[in-house]
Amino acid sequence: MRADPVIITGTGLIALAALPPASPLLEARLPTHILSQYPVVIAGGAVIGARLARDRPAPWTAAPALLAVILTLAFWLLPRWIDASLTDPATRVAKIASLACLAGLPLGWGWVQAGMVLRGFLIANAAAMLAVMGWLLLAVPSRLCSAYLLTDQRLAGQGLLIAAALLVIGSLGGAMIARDTGMRDRTSGHRTVN
C-alpha cells in the first residue's frame, strides 16, 4: 500500500505533540497541555479519520463517532486523569492513544459522515463542555490538579472559555455562510443535508 500524504501528515501531528522535544514543554503548564497538546493530537487523528471516511459513506456511524469524541474529551479533562498522565507513563500513552483514536479519528470520520443537525449537536455539546470546564477552573478556589499551579489553572480556565466562544462564533459564521451558499447548492442539485 502506498503511503497517503494525508495520513502521514496526521501521524506527524500526533507524534509532534506527543513526543519530545515538544511534549515536555507542552505538558509543563496546564494551559499548553490541554489547549495545545490535546487539540494537535485530536487534529492529527481527525485528519486521518476524514481521509478514511472520504470514499466510505456510512451515515449511521456519524452519531456514535461524534459521541465518542465528546466522552473521550470529557474523560481526559478530568483533573484526576490530567494528573495521572503526568506521573504514570502507561496513563500518558493511554491518553495520547485515546485522544488520537477515540477522539480525533472519530471526529474526522463522523464529521464527514454527519449531516448538519449532528454537526450542530457536536458543536453545541463541545462548547458547553469547554465552557463549564473553563468556568470550573476559574471558580474553584483550590487547585484541581496537584501537578499545576493555581495561576496556570486560571489561565487554562480563561483559555477554555475563549475556545468555547470561538467554537460558537465560528460555527455561527459557518452556518450563515452555508445558508447563503445552500440556496445555490440546492438549485444545482448538490447535497447539503443527509
Binding site: 459521541l67 466522552l71 478530568l78 486523569w81 495521572a84 484541581l144 490538579c145
Partner: peptide
C-alpha cells in the same frame, strides 16, 4: 450510539471512583 454512550458512561464512572473522585 447507545453502546458508545454506555461505554463512555462506564469509563467515566470507573475513572471517577463512582463519581466520588474528580481530582487526584
Amino acid at each position: 450510539t447507545v453502546a458508545v454512550a454506555a461505554l463512555g458512561a462506564a469509563a467515566l464512572w470507573w475513572g471517577t471512583d463512582q463519581g466520588g473522585a474528580l481530582t487526584s
